[in-house]
């Protein structure tokens, strides 16, 4: 009898059904409706469609002609590439440094992980003060060091600085997250390998190049895939710091532009089209990232 309950899998399906229904109602059904909505003319959330667009693929044509959508896509791709260097890269360097110190490891882990527990909106407000034009932290610091005249502060949110000002906090926010994953990965590498290498006369850099990085490859790949897919979905911090594509429509991301169209301009059908494009982008790039950074069996 005991053996029977494990052999018959029917009960397990019953346990899976609630989750499946939940996913179907709150994910798959809205997604299908989203596809349908992209062909209709809807002027407000919750309102009935006023009819089918003329032509029905109007929004898809608009998607390719919309210059602001181009800006959003360009920025989103940048946002996807930068974490490779500035999130995972910095996290790797920090993890290697912390792995080589004897004391304070736990302190650094906590200190670097801390930004993760702060909400993105709070971080956005904090960085708004850091980059403030009139009396902001950076401008005050530059003035105190006599690197800037008091009456000529730098506008860190103007067209020439805006993207960097937006990317820095976003990248910084998640460095600690990847740092913790990589530090854990480093802990799993056997010390015996390093000791053997030292006996053979290997330098620290050689140990990193020939032992640490190859054995950390799978962890690094996971981090890179997470960083790339996570960056595509970034919304809150850029929106708090640069609402409505400020300045001069230069800081749009696919997420923020979609939000603007749906919630602020009431163009629900066009925002549905952006959402579909966004989903396609995320699926394709996630798959590509998973293949490029495929884990290896050792």
């Amino acid at each position: 009898m005991n053996a029977m309950i494990y052999r018959k899998k029917g009960a397990l399906f019953l346990f899976l059904i609630p989750s499946l229904i939940f996913m179907a109602v709150f994910l798959y059904y809205p997604f299908v409706m989203n596809i349908i909505n992209s062909f209709l003319h809807i002027t407000a959330l919750g309102d009935k469609a006023l009819g089918v667009n003329q032509p029905w693929y109007e929004n898809y044509v608009k998607l390719f002609q919309d210059t602001l959508m181009g800006v959003a896509l360009k920025n989103t791709f940048l946002m996807m590439l930068l974490p490779i260097v500035f999130q995972v890269g910095i996290a790797l360097v920090l993890a290697l440094l912390v792995d080589n110190i004897r004391f304070g490891t736990q302190f650094f882990r906590t200190a670097f992980f801390f930004p993760i527990v702060i909400s993105a909106s709070a971080l956005g407000l904090m960085f708004n003060l850091v980059f403030l034009y009139d009396g902001g932290m950076i401008n005050q610091l530059l003035q105190a060091l006599h690197l800037q005249q008091a009456n000529l502060p730098v506008d860190w949110k103007d067209k020439s600085h805006a993207l960097a000002t937006m990317f820095i906090p976003v990248c910084w926010q998640y460095v600690g997250f990847y740092f913790v994953i990589l530090a854990t990965g480093l802990n799993n590498i056997s010390q015996e390998l390093y000791e053997a290498a030292e006996i053979d006369g290997a330098t620290k850099m050689q140990c990193i190049g020939h032992i640490t990085l190859p054995l950390l490859r799978n962890t690094l790949c996971t981090c890179l895939v997470l960083a790339i897919t996570g960056a595509l979905k970034v919304f809150d911090l850029p929106w708090v710091m640069f609402p409505s594509g400020m300045p001069m429509d230069t800081t749009w991301l696919t997420g923020t532009y979609m939000y603007q169209q749906a919630w602020k301009l009431g163009d629900v059908d066009y925002s549905s089209t952006i959402a579909i494009e966004f989903v396609v982008l995320v699926v394709v790039l996630s798959q590509a990232a998973s293949r490029v950074f495929k884990e290896k069996e050792y």
Binding site: L132, Y133, D134, G135, D155, K157, D158, K159, A162, P243, M246, P247, M248
Partner: peptide, 19 residues
Amino acid sequence: FPKNTNSTTDADTNNLMAK
């Protein structure tokens, strides 16, 4: 207008009056 009028918020420009 403020030099950063196209990249700043209403709250920041209000502060210019207060300061």
